[in-house]
């Protein structure tokens, strides 16, 4: 073993925290060295030696193969923003050119996901509801999967937890929570005017609820957000989304007038149904986020 590999091995040990000094010869001390550990393991079996020596070579080959496949794919990709890309076809042209006129939304993405492709967004919201439903089926507490001893222990732990709330977290929650909630509501309500919309705004609202719950406990959240609120909000939001979009799909096809005013583009109350649908999606996402946190940590909402 020459000096170079020795140095790299030492550097590797030093970075991994196994050696105390990078250059031990510069720090010669007269302290007695600890005795060398006696090797108790005999020579390795033949198979293990083969594995250990070939491991790095095989890993290198696999990594180089993966990297070359990915680089080749990137090399073959069409350039970003070129006019004759396969992705730029008459659908995209129609969305960009007529989107503002037909949907009334300044944000073209909101016009796409909540007007042209609203059915797809309904599916996504239903997937969220389905996910929280299956998590609840597995983890929700009822009389069949709990026993009195566990409940006693958990009640005891809850009392200890309530007496040991973290004051720093509570103070920061009081400062940050209004800003977070306000920002989430702004992102939801401004979804048809600026980037954002129901999904991102709902995620921000859910994160604010989770922060409040971890600072002040689930019992404080339960005063304004319990199982009944959760059920009501998700049901009303999903049903409202379905009913509104059914109305607009049934009556608004083939350029029939639906009677929904589009308003002036750029105003806050504009773009017809997109404003309402954003609120519905935001409610579902916020409820689902907090529901996941609550069911996973406590087994109830």
């Amino acid at each position: 073993m020459n000096i170079e590999t020795n140095f790299f091995k030492r550097l590797n040990d030093w970075v991994n925290g196994e050696a105390d000094r990078l250059f031990p010869e510069l720090h010669e001390t007269d302290a007695p060295k600890p005795p060398e550990p006696v090797a108790t393991i005999g020579p390795l079996p033949n198979k293990d030696v083969l594995f250990l020596t070939s491991y790095q070579a095989v890993a290198l080959i696999v990594v180089i193969g993966m990297v070359s496949i990915l680089l080749y794919t990137v090399y073959k990709l069409p350039l970003f923003g070129v006019a004759d890309n396969p992705a730029v076809n008459e659908v995209v042209e129609r969305y960009v050119e007529k989107g503002l006129e037909e949907t009334g939304a300044v944000n073209v993405v909101a016009g796409m996901i909540l007007d042209y492709r609203a059915f797809d967004t309904l599916g996504e919201s239903s997937v969220l509801l389905l996910a929280i439903t299956s998590v609840m089926m597995l983890l929700l507490k009822d009389e069949k999967n709990t026993d009195p001893d566990e409940e006693l222990i958990e009640a005891h732990e809850a009392v200890i937890e309530d007496h040991n709330r973290d004051m720093i977290l509570q103070t920061m929650t009081i400062i940050l929570m209004p800003a977070i909630m306000l920002y989430g509501i702004y992102v939801i309500l401004n979804g048809h005017l600026s980037p954002g919309g129901g999904f991102s705004g709902g995620a921000i609202l859910g994160a604010g609820l989770i922060l409040f719950a971890s600072g002040f406990g689930h019992n404080r959240v339960k005063k304004f957000f319990n199982m009944k609120t959760f059920r009501t909000l998700t049901t009303i939001a999903l049903l409202g989304y379905g009913v509104l979009k059914t109305y607009s799909f049934l009556l608004g096809a083939n350029h029939l007038p639906t009677g929904i005013p589009l308003g002036t583009p750029g105003a806050i109350f504009s773009s017809g149904l997109i404003f309402v649908l954003d609120i519905c999606v935001g409610l579902i996402v916020a409820c689902t986020m907090y529901g996941f946190f609550s069911v996973f940590s406590r087994g109830e909402i």
Binding site: D166, I168, M172, I175, L176, A179
Partner: peptide, 16 residues
């Protein structure tokens, strides 16, 4: 400003 509010609190909670 928001990172300086949030990240020390998170580190404090991990330490706690």
């Amino acid at each position: 400003v928001f990172l300086w509010m949030a990240s020390p609190v998170a580190s404090h909670l991990i330490a706690r």
